[in-house]
């Protein structure tokens, strides 16, 4: 059975560990170089079904500022990130907003909410 090694840079935190993953029959069987368990999970996901967080902004009405920064509550499939960003372009919310409020539930039916990154008081 073919044993393959792939080198990838972890993106879970700014440490950016360089991970060497061992792949046997399409399955990640080991990782070296990651300084925490998140790295092992990242390597497994990245080599099978890559996932990414999404951050963007949505329009706010009645707020102190015109835009509200938002973040996905969890990772989304990498291949759907641009679709999700496009979906957020048509979302408008009303102030006041609190950090963590859901601004777009279950984005594109992917099971992940988009939430506010910060408070937004009324103007």
């Amino acid at each position: 059975m073919a044993i393959e090694q792939k080198v990838l840079n972890c993106i879970m935190c700014p440490m950016g560990c360089e991970i060497t993953a061992t792949i046997e029959a399409g399955v990640v069987t080991g990782t070296i170089g990651n300084r925490c368990p998140r790295g092992a999970k990242y390597a497994k996901d990245e080599l099978t079904a890559p996932m990414r967080m999404l951050t963007s902004t949505v329009r706010v009405t009645g707020g102190r500022l015109r835009l509200l920064p938002v973040v996905s509550a969890d990772v989304l499939p990498k291949g759907r990130i641009l679709d999700c960003a496009e979906a957020l372009r048509s979302v408008t919310v009303d102030a006041p907003i609190h950090a963590g409020d859901v601004v777009c539930p279950d984005v594109l039916g992917l099971g992940v909410d988009i939430v506010a990154s910060r408070d937004m008081e009324r103007a």
Partner: peptide, 10 residues
Amino acid sequence: QELTGPGYAQ
């Protein structure tokens, strides 16, 4: 905890 920039500022 992993935060956004505005989240960290908050």
